[in-house]
Design a protein around this nucleic acid. Structure first.
Lengths: 328, 328
DNA sequence: TTGTATGCGTTATCAT
DNA sequence: ATGATAACGCATACAA
């Protein structure tokens, strides 16, 4: 790969002059510019970013640290981040932690070594103060995406509000008992229950939480719940993947959806449209989140005032489909 | 971020000595080693990869150029590539072409600028000789993954053979007519038809190819096919995503699966297990492909003899499930 | 064992 | 308008 110095020799000028030409800088003699440009093009010159970074101090790299890139939701997020970053001349160096804190720690070191200009992270560890400090001590502009992290810039959807949308929806659809699949610490759950309790205080106790991912166990819990509560059941799963599994189990059990049980997923994956019945789901604004995250990051990169990070909650939107709406 | 030179000053030795210590090189005075190591740790020293690359000439970056990272299959592939590369100290710089040849071209330039040590590509353009030359002219070790590209190293699954597995399977399951969803240029199709024609020459004509992704059109074509051929129909879709869509349509049409129509997808996505009926699908050896690709790449990086690239076909495996097997 | 000197490919600051 | 020169952070060959 040809360098500026070599071009300089070939064209009989100095290397800085080549630099000026190639960067469109300053006023340079038109005929020199012509010669140099021609030579560069002829030899397919490409600047060495490593050298540029050393001299300049901007790598134009954004470190992206994810928990699981094989998760469709994150993969989609990355796609949009790559696009937004690319528009501004930034590239992604990608890491997958696989939910391992040690891996995450390693990644944090590696991005330092590459002197990335910024960082987009989906953290493994749920916001320990220690983790936040560690990130802050990197002195690299960073934005946490998909999760809250006080003191740091973060972009996420308001899960509580999303959960309450689902609660209201299922209540409106005449559900008299409720099932939540997922972790009770999840804000989705809180919003969900709040809404239900507010709208139907009488049904407050008609609730089952299922954590396991094991089909047989799920079936057992569901059977018990449905036996206990004869009215229509409203089921809310923390993501589409699990919702799909549940749908399969319900069908195998011969439970009518949405008649006997109404089902709502989360993430609004492409498959929602393809399933039968079509799966109601909560749509997260992936593209907007990615754009916001990159925007915040670039802003911090341009203006490195060490301000406190801000929270940037975004709104999710329930897409009702036939898995929860009888009319459809 | 502290540098070697600064550590040198702080510890009263020369920068090269610091370098030696930090790289575990040579024999260095134990007490000097101690002092330097301590100082480095205390200040959280991290080497500057940009500088290392400039001096050394290895960036430890692998450029990964994909057509669509939001595709679950590719996302999974990336996950494994990242893992394999990481084991060997290589990092990924990720690009998404979105199937745009111009974007791909840009990416090829950008990876040059970053002086990546190697390249893993899922090309947009189907193997024009021009494209192959362009890649070869980069003089960067490259491996094409998921597609064939003669003259270049490539890792892919033998789609023809995979298709024929599906053909045999559906024939064994008593299918008397066949539908292929996808492009007829696809080798999956060729293998599929070959197998069917060989096993049941009489049914050779009982075949429909459907290209459209539009639900209404799909339904129309399927209805026509099923009306025309009363025997059991064997349906093969080029990926699980489409298979899922088809399953939904069949269910809406009231077609019994696998009784009236047997369905087989491709990619063996997680959802296969979750659907009802469970979806038969062809499993591609993602992890093995990723490992092989990285292995080839690292080999080429270590031993830069400019040999002809080789094809590395791998075997897919049909996973029969209840969408195509009555017994299950 | 350790220090000096040099170079990697740029950018940037000087002169000229 | 252009050429010296230094500097970025590190590795490496050589000298001591």
């Amino acid at each position: 790969m040809i360098t500026m110095t070599e071009i300089a020799k070939l064209t009989g000028v100095s290397q800085p002059t080549v630099s000026r030409v190639l960067n469109g800088n300053q006023a340079v003699n038109p005929e020199v510019r012509e010669r140099v440009t021609a030579c560069a093009r002829e030899h397919g010159y490409q600047p060495n970013v490593m050298a540029q970074s050393l001299a300049g101090s901007r790598t134009h790299l954004i470190g992206v640290i994810l928990t699981d890139i094989s998760n469709a939701f994150f993969a989609d997020l990355v796609k949009h981040i790559e696009q937004e970053a690319g528009k501004n001349g930034y590239r992604l160096i990608l890491f997958n932690t696989n939910y391992h804190p040690e891996r995450e720690q390693e990644c944090l070191e590696v991005v330092q070594r590459y002197r990335v200009d910024g960082l987009v992270v989906v953290p493994v560890q749920e916001e320990t103060a220690e983790w936040r400090d560690r990130v802050r001590r990197l002195h690299i502009p960073a934005v946490v995406i998909t999760r809250r992290a006080k003191g740091l810039d973060c972009v996420y959807v308001d899960h509580r509000e999303a959960g309450s949308q689902v609660g209201r929806h299922l209540h409106e659809q005449g559900c008299e008992s409720y099932v939540f699949f997922g972790n009770m610490a999840d804000e989705k759950y809180e919003g969900f229950m709040e809404a239900v309790e507010k709208l139907a205080p009488a049904n407050r106790k008609h609730f089952t939480n299922i954590v396991t991912k094991e089909p047989a166990a799920i079936e057992k819990h569901l059977a018990k719940h449905l036996e206990q509560y004869p009215g229509r059941a409203g089921i809310f799963a923390y993501n589409d993947r699990r919702a799909l599994q549940i749908l399969g189990i319900l069908q195998r059990m011969g439970i009518e959806v949405p008649g006997r049980a109404a089902l709502v997923g989360f993430d609004n994956t492409y498959m929602c449209e393809y399933l039968y019945p079509r799966l109601s789901s909560v749509s997260q604004p992936n593209e907007a989140m990615a754009a916001k995250a990159v925007e915040l990051l670039l802003h911090r990169i341009e203006q490195p005032e060490e301000l406190q990070g801000e929270a940037h909650p975004m709104h999710a939107r329930l897409i009702p489909r036939s898995s929860s709406v009888i009319a459809l």
